[in-house]
């Protein structure tokens, strides 16, 4: 059953220098209990997609398309209706745990305020739930750390606090924006395992945002590869890893050090993402693509293929000899 469905989602920002087209025509769906990965380089629009779902985009943003949740378009929802969904139905784990916690409030207060807001829970009952959430994300000595402030925690612990915060009201969907980027590799693995475990227990859906395909491998059913705000390829994760169709996806996979399939040399993709103010007419990846033809520079490739594996490319990998 589909929980969240984005159709032709586009996001642009009005800036003094012109309009930045950060996200273009992105469609995807997340089923109940499913984990979907959103992968792409820095600046490809991943965070903005997540923010748009909760109506948290900056003031200069304009959206078009629809994001449907329980039959309603979140993009056009009134503020107070949206507020009743935020944290309670859909919660977000923010990208940077160093700045997304309020430095002037105790951890307990920051954790219990969504309980108070959505469930009217206060006092001992609220504290019990806060401690449960802190235990769930393995924050040691939780009881004695309730009155601590964010600066008294390490980066890894803050990341756990941010995750606990998103879990407080047992939401149906979590938008996890790079929940592990701020951490070193061992802690990364712990946190991912933790998320997976919590998800299994509560049948929660997750939109996992990352630029690291290594993280995606074990954790997600479906993967969307984003480039310059467009979907380049989307497929079941296994399928995508085994038979990447888009040169960009293949490039990404080659840049992953610890994946069996990507044997051979570790390579990064040369070049920079395009200017999103005046995007080139053709495929946004063309300037960096090894296989590009004249058509690639001229025409934007549509997203085509079997619904289980789609790609936007004029010369997909499998058609090359």
């Amino acid at each position: 059953m589909t929980l969240l469905q984005a159709e032709n989602l586009s996001i642009e920002f009005q800036t003094p220098d012109g309009v930045v087209k950060a996200v273009n025509d992105v469609s995807f769906s997340i089923g109940a209990g499913e984990t979907v990965a959103l992968v792409g380089e820095s600046g490809s629009g991943k965070s903005q997609i997540a923010l748009s779902v909760l109506g948290l985009l900056a003031g200069n943003a304009r959206t078009s398309g629809t994001v449907t949740y329980q039959g309603k378009n979140l993009l056009e929802m009134q503020q107070n209706e949206l507020n009743s969904i935020r944290a309670k139905e859909i919660a977000m784990i923010f990208q940077d745990p160093m700045t997304s916690l309020n430095p002037y409030m105790t951890i307990e207060r920051q954790l219990n305020e969504s309980l108070e807001q959505h469930e009217g829970l206060k006092g001992a009952a609220a504290r019990k739930r806060v401690l449960e959430a802190m235990d769930a994300v393995r924050i040691p000595d939780a009881k004695n750390r309730l009155k601590a402030y964010p600066h008294e925690f390490s980066g890894g612990m803050r990341q756990r606090i941010v995750i606990a915060m998103a879990l407080m009201c047992s939401p149906k969907l979590i938008l996890a924006d790079e929940p592990t980027t701020a951490l070193d590799v061992t802690v990364q693995a712990q946190i991912m395992a933790l998320l997976k475990e919590i998800q299994r227990e509560s049948d929660m859906s997750v939109l996992l945002i990352t630029h690291d395909l290594g993280v995606v491998a074990g954790a997600c059913e479906k993967t969307l590869v984003l480039y310059a705000g467009r979907v380049m390829e989307q497929a079941g994760t296994l399928d995508l890893f085994e038979t990447p169709s888009h040169p960009y996806t293949r490039g990404l996979l080659r840049a992953v050090p610890n994946i069996q399939d990507a044997v051979g040399d570790l390579r990064s993709i040369a070049g920079q993402p395009p200017n999103q103010m005046v995007p080139p007419p053709g495929c946004p990846f063309a300037p960096r693509c090894e296989n590009r033809t004249e058509q690639c520079d001229r025409e934007l490739p549509p997203l085509v293929g079997d619904i289980r594996h789609q790609r936007a490319c004029w010369r997909p990998v499998e058609e090359l000899v």
């Binding site: 923010l51 507020n83 969904i85 935020r86 944290a87 940077d96 700045t99 916690l101 309020n102 002037y104």
Partner: peptide, 26 residues
């Protein structure tokens, strides 16, 4: 414009609460 105010919004708190509880002190 601080990220932690966005965090507070993501909790579904009304603007007035965010202003008084989160923004006023700093």
């Amino acid at each position: 414009g601080a990220p932690y105010i966005r965090t507070a919004r993501a909790k579904g708190l009304p603007e007035r609460t965010i202003l008084i509880r989160h923004a006023l002190k700093p």
